[in-house]
Design a binder for these strands. Sequence first.
DNA 1: ATGAAAGCGCTAACAT
DNA 2: ATGTTAGCGCTTTCAT
Lengths: 374, 374
Amino acid sequence: MENPQHPPDSPGARPRRSHGRATLADVATHAGVTPMTVSRMLREPDRVAPETAQRIRQAIDDTGYSPNKQAGGLASGRSAIVAAIIPSVANSVFAETIQGLSDALQPAGLELFLAPNDYKLEREEDQLKTLLGWGPAAIAVTGRRHSPVALALMRQAKRAGTPVIQMWDLDARDTEFLQIGFNHHLVGVAMGEHLLACGYRDLAYVDSGVAEDFRAHERGQGLAQAARLAGAALQVLVAPPCEPMAAGRLALLKLMQQRLPRALAFANDHLAAGACLQALELGLALPDQLALLGYGDFPISQQLGRGISTMAAPRYQIGLATGQSILLALGRPLAEDQQVLDHGSLVPTLVVRNTTVAGAGINPANVAEGSSRD
Amino acid sequence: MENPQHPPDSPGARPRRSHGRATLADVATHAGVTPMTVSRMLREPDRVAPETAQRIRQAIDDTGYSPNKQAGGLASGRSAIVAAIIPSVANSVFAETIQGLSDALQPAGLELFLAPNDYKLEREEDQLKTLLGWGPAAIAVTGRRHSPVALALMRQAKRAGTPVIQMWDLDARDTEFLQIGFNHHLVGVAMGEHLLACGYRDLAYVDSGVAEDFRAHERGQGLAQAARLAGAALQVLVAPPCEPMAAGRLALLKLMQQRLPRALAFANDHLAAGACLQALELGLALPDQLALLGYGDFPISQQLGRGISTMAAPRYQIGLATGQSILLALGRPLAEDQQVLDHGSLVPTLVVRNTTVAGAGINPANVAEGSSRD
DNA sequence: ATGAAAGCGCTAACAT
DNA sequence: ATGTTAGCGCTTTCAT
C-alpha cells in the first residue's frame, strides 16, 4: 500500500506517479542508501562496496525493480535505441537484414525501432521525424535515395553525432553517410557478363513491379550497359505487380507471346523461380533453349529443377555489418562471440547453377544448411 | 551558435544539454509564448487561438523542432511504444505478422519495439525485463508458453494496466491475457480429418526441427488424435535442422528408406514443398501414390506441381488483429481506412489442392495476388 | 486563452 | 565509497 501523505501547504505539491512500478528511490529506501548509490551500482558496479552492492541487489529483487529507460535516456542524453527504416519486413531480404541487425545489437543492449515504409519514399520523412524524437543512438535507412527533407533530417542527425547508415547500397564516391552494401549497377554488369560469357546474345531483364525498388532498376541498367558494350540485344520487361512467383510465370508467358529471348535475368529469385516453373511446365529445356539468372540466392533457387543460377546477396550479413558498424561508431564493444565482418564479404557472388550452364547444377537433395524452423 | 552564459554564483547551475536539437522552450521563445502554449498547441490545437497557433507552427518549422518522446513519455507516464517478442523475423510467418502489426500501429503513432528471441524461451525473460523498462503501451508475445519468471512479468504488466497479448495461439479456457490466434491442436485434427476423409489410413507427420516450436508439436498431436480415433496409423518424424526445403526432401528420403506412408502432413509448407519436389523428381505420382499436406499456405504451395494442399494460416491478419486489439484496449481510434478484423477470420482454412485430391489443382499461372517487390 | 510551478525517474557534476 | 544538487524536456495541475 502507498502511504498517502497530507498535501503540504505550498500550492504545487501534486504527486503524479500513477504506475505501480518500483523506482530507483524505492530500491534505495529498501537498501538503506541513496538513489545515487543504486544508480551507480547499476552502471559501475566496481565503484560501490561489495557489501552495499549485495544489499542493493537484494532490494532490487525484492522490489522487482527494472530501470525506467525513458528517464535514464532523458537524463543521460543517450538512448539505447537504434532506429531502422526499411521498405518491408514481409520480404525475406529485409527480414533477414533485420535479424542480422538485431543479432548484433541485442547483446549490446540496444533496442531496435522498426519502421517499414512499404517502399514509399515519401513516408521516410515522417518516419525520420518521429524516430529522431527518440534521440536514437543511431539510424539505419535503406538505400541512398531520399527526399530533400529526409536528407536534411539525416544530415541534422549526423551533425548531432548520431551515426547514420545507408544499407543495401554503396557508392564509393559518396562519403556523407556510412554505407553498408554494394553497387547494384556493378552487380547488374556482372550478371550481364555472365550471360554474355555463356554465349547468350539476346537478353531480357525482368524488373520487379515495384516503382521505388531503385536498386533493382540499377541492376537492370548495369545489365543493359554490359549488353550494349557487347553489342547484344536487351529488352526490359516490368513484372506485373502480383505475387512474385506468379509474376515470374506471367513475365515468361508475355515474352513468349512476342519472341522469347535466349536468356532472362530477373530482379529477384522469386521471379526467376516462377519463370523456371513455367518454363519446365512448358517443356522448355534449361539452359539449352532458355537461360535464367536470378538475384538473391533464396533457398528456392537451390531447390528448383537442377538449381537456378543467381547472384547471392548477403541479406543477413548486411544487417549484421550494419549493427557492428553502429557499435563501432558508438565506441561500444562487439559481443565477444561475434566475428567482425569484412565489408568486402558484402559483395554478391555469382552462383552458377543449371539454368545458365548445363551440368553446373548441384544436387539439391544433398544441400543442407540453415534451419527448418517455422 | 549557442549562447554560453556565465555560470551563476550558486554552486549547482550546470547546464547539461549536449545535443543540438531544438526544444519546446526554443520554439516558445521563437514564437513569443510560453512552452506550455506550444505543448498545448501540439496536443489540443483547438485550445489555442488560431493566430497564436499560426505563429507557433511557423516557429516549429523555423527551428526544426521535433518533440522529445522520452521526455514526453516520462512526464505523461504514457509511452507510445508497443513491444513485440517473436521467435524470429527471418521467417515469413512472423515477418508478415510484424508487417500487420506495424500497419495497424503506425497510423496511430505507436512505435514498434522488436525483440526476436530465436525460439529460445529463456531469452524471453530478459527481453520482457528490458522492454518493460520502456513502460510500453502494450506488449505482444508469441505463443502461450512462458517461463515462470516471464509469466510473472506479464502479470505485473497486466496489473499495471498494460495490455498483454499472446499471438498465434488460443485456448478459450484461459482468459488471463488477450489472445489473438487459434487452437493448433484443432488445426492438427482438421489436417488429420482431411487426410482420413481422402481415404488415407497410413499417415506420417513431419515436425519441424525446432524444439521450441510448440505450436507445430501441437498440430502434430491433433493429427495424432484424429488418426487414433479413426484407427489409422501415424508415425512422427522430426525434420533435420537444416534449410526447410532441403529438410523436406531429406524427410521424404528417410521415410522411403523404411516404408513410405500413404500420406504426409508437414509442420509447414516449406517442408512440404521440399518433399514435393523430391517426390516429383523420384517420379512419384501425387496424390495417387503419395499425398502431401502442408501448413501455412505460403506462395510456393500455390506454384509447385499442380498446387500443394495446405492449411492457410492468417499470418498478416494476426499481426493486424493484434494491433487493432491493442488500439482498442488503449481506447484509441483505429485508422479510418482500417476494417476491424473479425477474429473468427483468424482460423486457418483448408486449401485443397492437388497433393491430396486428384484434379483439385489450381492453374497456378492464372493466380496473381500479392506483390512482386523485392 | 494562456501561464506558473512542480514533478516524472534518472544521471552528471560536484561535493564529502 | 557515498551523498547532494540540479536538471534532462516535457506534461500535469492549478491559477489567471
